[in-house]
Protein backbone atom coordinates (compact mmCIF):
# COMPACT_ATOMS: atom_id res chain seq x y z
CA UNK A 1 0.00 0.00 0.00
CA UNK A 2 1.31 3.44 -0.93
CA UNK A 3 -0.09 6.55 0.66
CA UNK A 4 -0.73 9.53 -1.57
CA UNK A 5 0.69 12.18 0.76
CA UNK A 6 0.23 14.96 -1.82
CA UNK A 7 -3.57 14.49 -1.79
CA UNK A 8 -3.82 13.79 1.95
CA UNK A 9 -5.75 16.60 3.67
CA UNK A 10 -5.73 15.63 7.35
CA UNK A 11 -6.69 19.01 8.84
CA UNK A 12 -9.52 20.03 6.56
CA UNK A 13 -10.91 16.49 6.56
CA UNK A 14 -10.77 16.31 10.35
CA UNK A 15 -12.36 19.76 10.65
CA UNK A 16 -15.07 18.78 8.16
CA UNK A 17 -15.68 15.62 10.18
CA UNK A 18 -16.03 17.67 13.37
CA UNK A 19 -18.63 19.88 11.64
CA UNK A 20 -20.55 16.81 10.47
CA UNK A 21 -20.41 15.46 14.03
CA UNK A 22 -21.63 18.79 15.38
CA UNK A 23 -24.55 18.76 12.93
CA UNK A 24 -25.54 15.21 13.90
CA UNK A 25 -25.24 16.13 17.60
CA UNK A 26 -27.46 19.19 17.24
CA UNK A 27 -30.16 17.25 15.42
CA UNK A 28 -30.35 14.47 17.99
CA UNK A 29 -30.08 16.70 21.06
CA UNK A 30 -32.49 19.38 19.85
CA UNK A 31 -34.92 17.42 17.67
CA UNK A 32 -34.37 13.85 18.81
CA UNK A 33 -33.75 12.70 15.26
CA UNK A 34 -30.97 10.84 13.46
CA UNK A 35 -29.05 12.82 10.84
CA UNK A 36 -29.05 10.12 8.18
CA UNK A 37 -29.35 11.68 4.76
CA UNK A 38 -30.89 8.69 3.00
CA UNK A 39 -33.45 8.39 5.81
CA UNK A 40 -34.27 12.10 5.82
CA UNK A 41 -34.76 12.10 2.02
CA UNK A 42 -36.48 8.71 1.91
CA UNK A 43 -38.94 9.78 4.58
CA UNK A 44 -40.19 12.49 2.22
CA UNK A 45 -41.26 9.81 -0.24
CA UNK A 46 -43.66 8.53 2.44
CA UNK A 47 -45.00 11.84 3.75
CA UNK A 48 -46.62 11.82 7.18
CA UNK A 49 -48.34 14.79 8.78
CA UNK A 50 -46.01 16.89 10.93
CA UNK A 51 -42.99 14.97 9.73
CA UNK A 52 -42.17 16.65 6.43
CA UNK A 53 -41.25 20.25 7.36
CA UNK A 54 -38.05 19.42 9.25
CA UNK A 55 -36.96 17.02 6.50
CA UNK A 56 -37.51 19.63 3.79
CA UNK A 57 -35.72 22.29 5.89
CA UNK A 58 -32.75 19.97 6.44
CA UNK A 59 -32.44 19.30 2.71
CA UNK A 60 -32.85 22.98 1.89
CA UNK A 61 -30.00 23.72 4.31
CA UNK A 62 -27.80 21.18 2.56
CA UNK A 63 -28.65 22.63 -0.84
CA UNK A 64 -27.75 26.15 0.34
CA UNK A 65 -24.49 24.98 1.95
CA UNK A 66 -22.31 25.46 -1.16
CA UNK A 67 -23.55 29.06 -1.44
CA UNK A 68 -22.74 29.81 2.20
CA UNK A 69 -19.41 28.02 1.94
CA UNK A 70 -18.37 29.89 -1.22
CA UNK A 71 -19.22 33.16 0.51
CA UNK A 72 -16.81 32.39 3.38
CA UNK A 73 -14.16 30.35 1.64
CA UNK A 74 -13.17 28.87 -1.69
CA UNK A 75 -14.95 25.64 -2.59
CA UNK A 76 -12.39 22.89 -3.19
CA UNK A 77 -12.22 21.46 -6.69
CA UNK A 78 -14.22 18.38 -7.43
CA UNK A 79 -13.82 15.88 -10.17
CA UNK A 80 -16.35 13.38 -11.50
CA UNK A 81 -14.88 10.97 -14.02
CA UNK A 82 -17.66 8.35 -14.01
CA UNK A 83 -19.55 8.01 -17.32
CA UNK A 84 -23.25 8.89 -17.46
CA UNK A 85 -24.59 5.31 -17.77
CA UNK A 86 -22.40 4.26 -14.84
CA UNK A 87 -23.61 7.26 -12.81
CA UNK A 88 -27.22 6.16 -13.42
CA UNK A 89 -26.39 2.64 -12.24
CA UNK A 90 -24.51 4.05 -9.23
CA UNK A 91 -27.41 6.32 -8.29
CA UNK A 92 -29.95 3.50 -8.55
CA UNK A 93 -27.79 1.20 -6.41
CA UNK A 94 -27.26 3.93 -3.81
CA UNK A 95 -30.98 4.76 -3.73
CA UNK A 96 -32.23 1.19 -3.46
CA UNK A 97 -29.37 0.01 -1.25
CA UNK A 98 -29.56 2.76 1.36
CA UNK A 99 -33.33 2.28 1.77
CA UNK A 100 -33.19 -1.52 2.00
CA UNK A 101 -30.15 -1.26 4.25
CA UNK A 102 -31.86 1.46 6.36
CA UNK A 103 -29.02 3.96 6.08
CA UNK A 104 -25.93 5.35 4.43
CA UNK A 105 -22.57 6.81 5.40
CA UNK A 106 -24.19 9.35 7.73
CA UNK A 107 -26.98 7.31 9.33
CA UNK A 108 -25.00 4.10 9.84
CA UNK A 109 -21.41 5.29 9.44
CA UNK A 110 -21.56 8.33 11.71
CA UNK A 111 -24.71 8.25 13.87
CA UNK A 112 -25.05 4.46 14.12
CA UNK A 113 -21.43 3.82 15.05
CA UNK A 114 -21.52 6.74 17.50
CA UNK A 115 -24.55 5.09 19.17
CA UNK A 116 -22.72 1.77 19.31
CA UNK A 117 -25.35 0.05 17.16
CA UNK A 118 -24.43 -3.49 16.06
CA UNK A 119 -26.72 -3.17 13.01
CA UNK A 120 -24.87 -0.05 11.91
CA UNK A 121 -21.49 -1.71 12.43
CA UNK A 122 -22.55 -4.59 10.16
CA UNK A 123 -23.99 -2.16 7.59
CA UNK A 124 -20.87 0.05 7.64
CA UNK A 125 -18.51 -2.90 7.25
CA UNK A 126 -20.70 -4.19 4.40
CA UNK A 127 -20.76 -0.97 2.39
CA UNK A 128 -17.09 -0.16 3.04
CA UNK A 129 -16.01 -3.62 1.93
CA UNK A 130 -18.28 -3.48 -1.14
CA UNK A 131 -16.85 -0.03 -1.95
CA UNK A 132 -13.23 -1.22 -1.62
CA UNK A 133 -13.92 -4.27 -3.83
CA UNK A 134 -15.83 -2.23 -6.44
CA UNK A 135 -13.01 0.30 -6.80
CA UNK A 136 -10.44 -2.50 -6.94
CA UNK A 137 -12.38 -4.16 -9.76
CA UNK A 138 -13.10 -0.99 -11.74
CA UNK A 139 -9.58 0.44 -11.33
CA UNK A 140 -7.30 -2.56 -11.30
CA UNK A 141 -9.14 -5.50 -12.87
CA UNK A 142 -11.26 -3.94 -15.64
CA UNK A 143 -9.69 -0.51 -15.93
CA UNK A 144 -6.10 -1.52 -15.07
Amino acid sequence: MTIDWASFTPWTSLAGGLLIGLAASLLVLMNGRIAGISGVVGGLLRPRTGDTAWRAAFILGMLLAPGLYAWIWRIPQSEITTSTPLLVAAGLLVGIGTRFGSGCTSGHGVCGLARGSARSLVATLSFMLAGFITVFVTRHVIGG
Binding site: L93, G97, T124, S126, A130
Partner: peptide
Amino acid sequence: GSVAFGIGWG
Protein backbone atom coordinates in the same frame (compact mmCIF):
# COMPACT_ATOMS: atom_id res chain seq x y z
CA GLY B 1 -28.88 -3.32 0.93
CA SER B 2 -25.60 -2.05 2.35
CA VAL B 3 -23.58 -4.07 -0.17
CA ALA B 4 -25.65 -2.60 -3.04
CA PHE B 5 -25.05 0.86 -1.61
CA GLY B 6 -21.30 0.17 -1.33
CA ILE B 7 -21.11 -0.92 -4.99
CA GLY B 8 -22.92 2.25 -6.09
CA TRP B 9 -20.69 4.35 -3.83
CA GLY B 10 -17.57 2.77 -5.34
